[in-house]
């Protein structure tokens, strides 16, 4: 009954900075340990802030640039914090830590299509402007691999 030797399972954890972030990381690590899987984590730096402020065409001159630079700074800080927390919890488990800028859902989908078996993310998924959109719905609609939604901590 033992299955033929298969390459180790590949997990992708989409990192976010919302209230459910910690539980998602814990779950992903637990599953990866159980299955002896590799665990890659992906933090997407939201690069769609410019379009969000695009509603107002008069936001003239440097104010918008200053704003976008400020947002970029915050996004990078969140990325670093998230990465630090993940690495601490992961210990010496095999896997990569990826950081990429772009549209959050698009980047996650693209990455998940690269031969992963399971995508783990917290629900609700709050990365950057995804707080305003329905990231989970967009991700799960014909998702490229299995998806595990981890609910946020309930007090």
């Amino acid at each position: 009954m033992t299955p033929p030797v298969t390459p180790p399972m590949k997990l992708l954890l989409a990192l976010d900075d919302g209230p459910g972030a910690r539980r998602a990381v814990d779950e992903a690590i637990r599953i990866a340990r159980e299955k002896g899987a590799t665990l890659d984590a992906l933090f997407v730096i939201d690069a769609t802030w410019d379009v969000f402020t695009g509603h107002d065409w008069l936001s003239g001159c440097n104010s918008r640039i200053g704003f976008l630079e400020y947002m970029q700074g915050l996004e990078e800080k969140a990325a670093a914090e998230s990465a630090r927390a993940f690495l601490e919890l992961r210990g010496d488990m095999p896997g990569e830590l990826l950081t990429a800028p772009g549209d959050v859902v698009d980047v996650i989908r693209e990455q998940a299509a690269k031969g992963y078996d399971l995508l783990v993310l917290s629900n609700p998924f709050t990365r950057g402007l995804e707080v305003m959109r329905d990231a989970v719905a967009r991700l799960t609609r014909d998702a490229p691999c299995d998806v595990l939604l981890v609910r946020a901590d309930t007090k």
Partner: peptide, 11 residues
Amino acid sequence: KKKSLTVFRSD
């Protein structure tokens, strides 16, 4: 990419 709301270099 983040600054490319306008087709110009800056506002």
